[in-house]
């Protein structure tokens, strides 16, 4: 009934075609707007940014400059155009980091560095862009933390060691550093357990789950980084690939011939049934048309009467 009423209304108000209400503004906090990259963008970064873009962003935003973004609400838009390019690097960084549905949050999927590479790539489409002076390492006054990863396979314990690099390039164990451990999955990283702080020797031990699937040899890529929301440290993320998971060799769901695969791996009997039915029925159709056209000539044969 709702529909009928609606039809009626629509006919009356013929000119009123429903227009989608405009989206709420997406506001970037003031203290984030001024944020700038910690390094000067280079052509190599632009290239790396391009790779990341194709993998993570193109599905919605299309190719920059091509205006071929996916038509969804709210519109993702072409990031090479003014709407995005008129924003500061800090604003872009904030949006990519935090996302807003349906724009995904890339905080955990891409590192800070990678998100800046993406911005360098996006900026390469803007000839008027001049990069603000990077807040260089020299200005940085906090601690420099270096992580290292090791693993005791039989007990499935992952050890992360944090050390502080001193000015004279010697190292001392860094205690009280909060460390996060992840496993790389198809899309993004899966956190293992809670974050932990290093002890006085600069060490944390993570219990690795015993049921986490790996590849055929049980290999998974694990990744550790410092949890540092306040930017107190300068630190590196470390990763390594090792056979700590459960070896899994399931054929991919699309490797066999099934209903849900592409046409090329359709089950034989489906192809046969479809093709045979089409051939039989259309065979008859062709046969009938051929015969019916023969009617024209049957008339002319003198021996017919």
């Amino acid at each position: 009934m709702r529909c009928k009423k609606q039809l009626f209304l629509i006919f009356i108000l013929a000119s009123l075609i429903p227009v989608r209400s405009s989206a709420q503004a997406w506001i970037v906090p003031d203290d984030q707007k001024g944020k700038v990259a910690p390094f000067k963008f280079t052509p190599v970064m632009v290239k790396q940014g391009e790779q990341l873009y194709l993998k993570n962003c193109q599905s919605c935003h299309g190719l920059p400059g091509k205006n071929n973004w996916v038509r969804i609400t709210p519109p993702p838009g072409d990031l090479s155009l003014e709407k995005a390019q008129n924003q500061s690097d800090g604003e872009l960084f904030y949006r990519i980091t935090n996302g807003r549905i349906p724009m995904p949050e890339f905080r955990k999927i891409l590192s800070d560095e990678e998100r800046w590479w993406l911005i360098s790539f996006l900026r390469s489409f803007n000839p008027r862009y001049i990069q603000p002076k990077p807040v260089s390492q020299a200005v940085f006054t906090g601690k420099i933390i270096q992580l290292s990863l090791s693993c005791d396979l039989p007990s499935k314990k992952v050890k992360v060691m944090a050390s502080e690099a001193l000015k004279d390039s010697s190292k001392i164990p860094a205690s009280g550093v909060e460390v996060l451990l992840f496993v790389k999955r198809y899309f993004g990283n899966l956190q293992i357990g809670d974050s932990k702080s290093t002890d006085k020797d600069g060490i944390v031990l993570f219990e690795f789950p015993s049921d986490l699937p790996g590849d055929k040899e049980g290999k998974v890529e694990i990744l550790a980084r410092v949890n540092d929301p306040g930017d107190q440290f300068k630190s590196n993320a470390v990763s390594m690939k090792l056979a700590i998971g459960v070896p899994t060799d399931k054929p991919s769901l699309i490797a066999t011939k099934t209903w849900w695969t592409s046409r090329r791996s359709a089950p034989m009997w489906v192809i046969m049934t479809y093709s045979l039915s089409v051939i039989i029925v259309w065979g008859f159709i062709v046969y009938i048309v051929y015969n019916v056209l023969k009617i024209r000539n049957l008339n002319n044969k003198p021996n017919n009467q």
């Binding site: 008859f284 009938i288 015969n291 019916v292 009617i295 024209r296 008339n299 002319n300």
Partner: peptide, 24 residues
């Protein structure tokens, strides 16, 4: 009309074709 003149051969084609069509 395909030169139809009610010849038996012509009728046979038509009625047989119709029967096949009805079954299909």
């Amino acid at each position: 009309s395909l030169n139809f003149t009610d010849r038996p051969e012509q009728n046979k084609i038509i009625s047989r074709s119709i029967r096949i069509l009805l079954i299909l």
